Simulated scan of single mutants.
Amino acid sequence: MPLLTIITITYNAEQFLERTLRSVAKAARLVPGVVDEVEYILVDGASQDGTLQIAEQYSSLFTRILSEPDKGLYDAMNKGLSLATGDYLWFLNAGDEVHDGQVLSRLLHAFQDPADVYYSDALFVDDSGQEIGLRSQVTPHALPKEIHWQDFALGMKISHQAFIVRRTIVPAYDTTNLSADIDWEIKCLKRSQKTVYLPFVLCRYLTGGISARHRRRSLLDRFKVLRGHFGLFPTVVNHIRIVARGLRFYSFKK
């Protein structure tokens, strides 16, 4: 049984997929015996472009490639969860990258001190691959060295691609909510007996995505998620704090 399952979700992702696959291949080459320690699964939503042809060029990298119609991103992610056999799960979607060639070896070393959740910062990049900055520096979401689910009262503290979870504690994603990733992380942290901060950056995160494209619905769905975990009145108050914090942060940045 592998220690780590990396899952990549794609749909018509030919523009960015190779960026992800190159980064995984580079990191894997630097880890002796990585074939036994890491499995790599691609879940594709029946892409109509060159996504699968690109994936086939890296076929030796994959343990499993599944391509079939799905009901959206979180349905595909649930399929990935059902296929995974590793002790830990890491989602890297098309366009996201392993931060550098040392990440996998450092991550496998960290697993020697078992925890339920590992997390770190994420480096934001744009479509061209140009670095924007660490998430904790270019957004209002500072990243604490110790974290609890209650810290999500003001929004998502950890990038989804910098959040690695023991497979035995993960819930399914809510396929009806565009902010299901926040809900999933909170639920994982509620179940975690030990959560560990990693002192190195796990990933290069491609900004944008479904939440950015459907901003208004995503914000409403985030409110629903936080209301479910924190209650209505605290969530209303906290959203006022979120707006005020954002205004202060971006005013200061200017």
Rank of each mutant, 00 (worst) to 15 (best):
I169L: 15
R19F: 15
L92P: 14
S82R: 12
T63Y: 08
Q130Y: 00
C188T: 03
P69T: 03
A94F: 02
D183G: 13
L178D: 12
G101H: 06
G45S: 06
T176N: 14
G101F: 01
F124K: 03
S59E: 04
K224L: 01
F200R: 01
K187H: 15
D36A: 04
S179L: 09
A110G: 10
E97Q: 15
I164S: 04
L178T: 15
I6D: 13
W184K: 00
P114K: 00
S211R: 14
Q53C: 06
F230H: 14
L206I: 09
T10Q: 06
D126C: 10
E37P: 07
D116F: 10
S47K: 05
V201I: 08
I242C: 07
M77R: 03
L123R: 11
F152Q: 01
K224W: 04
V225M: 11
L123T: 12
I41T: 00
S179F: 15
Y119I: 01
S82D: 07
S105D: 00
L61E: 14
G231F: 13
L189K: 10
Y197E: 01
I54N: 09
Q193K: 04
K190C: 01
V24G: 13
D183Y: 06
D181I: 13
N238Y: 12
D87V: 06
T63H: 09
P32Y: 04
Q57H: 08
L247F: 09
L61Y: 08
R248S: 00
S159L: 03
K190P: 10
S179N: 15
E18W: 06
F249G: 01
L219V: 05
V170I: 15
Y205N: 10
S128Y: 02
P140A: 03
V34I: 08
L134G: 03
R213Y: 13
G80N: 08
N78L: 01
N238A: 10
I9W: 03
Y118W: 04
A153Y: 01
P114Q: 00
R22N: 08
D183P: 08
D126K: 13
T207E: 05
L226M: 08
L232P: 02
S128I: 04
N93A: 07
K254L: 15
T175N: 06
L3Q: 14
T5K: 12
V165K: 07
E185G: 03
I182F: 07
F124Q: 08
G155D: 02
T8K: 07
F62M: 02
R248G: 00
S82F: 05
E185K: 04
K187A: 12
G246D: 11
G80M: 09
S211M: 12
R213P: 14
L73G: 04
L4R: 02
P69H: 04
Q15T: 10
G133S: 09
F223W: 11
R166F: 05
F200E: 02
Q48C: 05
L134N: 11
Y74M: 01
R167I: 15
I9R: 10
S82A: 09
T51G: 02
T168V: 11
F152W: 07
E97C: 14
E97K: 13
C203Q: 08
R167T: 14
I240D: 05
N12T: 00
L219D: 06
E185V: 02
E146Q: 12
A153L: 09
D87S: 11
R135D: 04
Y58V: 14
G208H: 06
D49P: 02
T207W: 08
I240C: 13
F62A: 05
